[in-house]
Design a protein around this nucleic acid. Sequence first.
DNA 1: GGCGAGAGCCGCAACGATATAACGTGATAC
DNA 2: GTATCACGTTATATCGTTGCGGCTCTCGCC
Lengths: 338, 338
Amino acid sequence: MTKSARLSEVAKLAGVSPGLVSRLINDDPRLKIRDETRKRVESAIEMLQYTPHASARALRSSQTGLLGFALYHVTDPIYAQMVENAEAAATAAGYSLVLLNASELAANPDALRRLAQGRRVDGLLIQGGYAQAHSSLQVANTMPTVLFNADPLPGFRTVRLDDAGAAALATRHLIELGHSRIAFVGAEGSSSERRYQGYLTAMVEAGLSSHPPIDGGWEADTARAVTERHFGNRAAVTGLVVVSTTSALGVHAGLIAAGLRVGHDVSLVSIHDTWFAPHLSPALTVAAMPLGDLGRVAVEMLLEQIRDRGEGEVILDSPATRIVHRASSARPADEDPR
Amino acid sequence: MTKSARLSEVAKLAGVSPGLVSRLINDDPRLKIRDETRKRVESAIEMLQYTPHASARALRSSQTGLLGFALYHVTDPIYAQMVENAEAAATAAGYSLVLLNASELAANPDALRRLAQGRRVDGLLIQGGYAQAHSSLQVANTMPTVLFNADPLPGFRTVRLDDAGAAALATRHLIELGHSRIAFVGAEGSSSERRYQGYLTAMVEAGLSSHPPIDGGWEADTARAVTERHFGNRAAVTGLVVVSTTSALGVHAGLIAAGLRVGHDVSLVSIHDTWFAPHLSPALTVAAMPLGDLGRVAVEMLLEQIRDRGEGEVILDSPATRIVHRASSARPADEDPR
DNA sequence: GGCGAGAGCCGCAACGATATAACGTGATAC
DNA sequence: GTATCACGTTATATCGTTGCGGCTCTCGCC
């Protein structure tokens, strides 16, 4: 029991050829086999506790059963949620995820080549932003790739959420509550820009004058600092739409530190729901997008591409976005309700 | 350029045999080669953009360069932080991490066999709790394994943090502020038990009477519900030590919901620091343990074991634990300060 | 009874790399 | 001048699977 069994040993024990055992294991559709023989082989497999050798199989069939998953920060709760669902989807299809550091891939183009050309994985899932970098373009031809949360790039499949729609929804939520002076706290990157566009759409359609975006960054720390600086004591607006829950946490803290009452002096809505949003005090109102679906769909698209070698770009704008109304947003206090 | 180059093609271009190229790439210490030949080979590699084929190499050398990393929840910010550092340590050593779902491994013992016996990875990192399950014991003999945040198990290498020490530190922090009625909010599992022991130690050494642990669970939701139920309006204690930041968030919310002022009526300290702890209002005081180190050390221990086939168990109790004092803890309001 | 048609199974040749033994050279020693 | 040896380099044997062509029976049928 110290050394695991080989396919040939199974074959010998069952009194058949290795090839037959292999075809049985991979249930080759055009395999004709007598029931008695099948049973014999199966019990030999059982007896020897046979498990196919992954590397040998990978070499021969040139399929590793691995998908590379490149992220900038696993610690970002938004993406952690996506990872969880992507992992589940991959496992369900018999694949595993290899965690990759997107920043490192971007910094070191050889690393990407090693992955793709060395056939270490069967496909790549890459977080947006990075994929826009030049070096990855070459990879596209040699390996199935899906970009998520990225601007569509010719030749790549892309999957992303309805950023503009969610931001518009969040903005409309504040407008419906009676707010008219509403600002958008954004960050760098195309997804923030799309969300700002959504904010603009909602403001224009309500006939309200919009503000230029406030850059708070993606991190809570920076968002907090910017908020404190921006809103020291006086609130120029009564409503804020924040680009992400992570930075909304910073805005939340910054407003309180500046002596403003969240959900009273200033109403706050952020994009993306996370597990901590309901537990802030006051709890955070959010425009929730189906992040889990993003992970699942990204994996499914990649697998489809691996199987069919399908070309062409696909953009998935999920319609499942909805407002989760919590205490951080309310009717404006110091304005006449409409 | 459509098909990537083989080792043999490099050899042919350089006018040498494949074996020589292989030994040069893997810098075999007992390889003697003329400088001129080396240059010729190297430029051939460069010219053909040669990259070793991962599966072929894995089959022949029986080393995949992959480490399995089994977690229960990637979304837990505590472990997310660990993953990030583990990934960095693995990459630095030329390895990659394969993300595994610990719950699924536990539920389905065949999955573990497939991994270990199928030689899909070179080693396994397994989150505690799961490893205690029976099925994993067999794996220990066939594959290098390191358990993290787990009780030491004979035959396994284990790495964990100084749970008891951190809890004692947190408790002493409250005692030093002048609190005497202090309770511990815990959860299921051995790490919570160790932390409760630390709480007891500190209480006993201060001559204070301790309370039985309050079970708040690991999640913010459950901790919040338990807190609201437990502390409806009246505070039986003035200080709380909470088993983890995640559940502390729930306790924080629950106290506020119950009408109690955190950092005033009740002081709160939790174990583990995370990115959101400073941004709660009031900000959370924590006993910070070096989570990043945990990830790094776990990987390093595993690699060591892979190389040396070293046996024996090692328990790392990191001494770097420290208190980060924020607004959620203060001198008790309704008691005489000592 | 001979022939064709499958059904059922076998065996060889890769897949791309690496480890090891074997092999040619010169140079050195006797 | 032959034996010895060190130094480079090559040839060959795997590693464990899978894909493919082909071989051998057993039947059915004219």
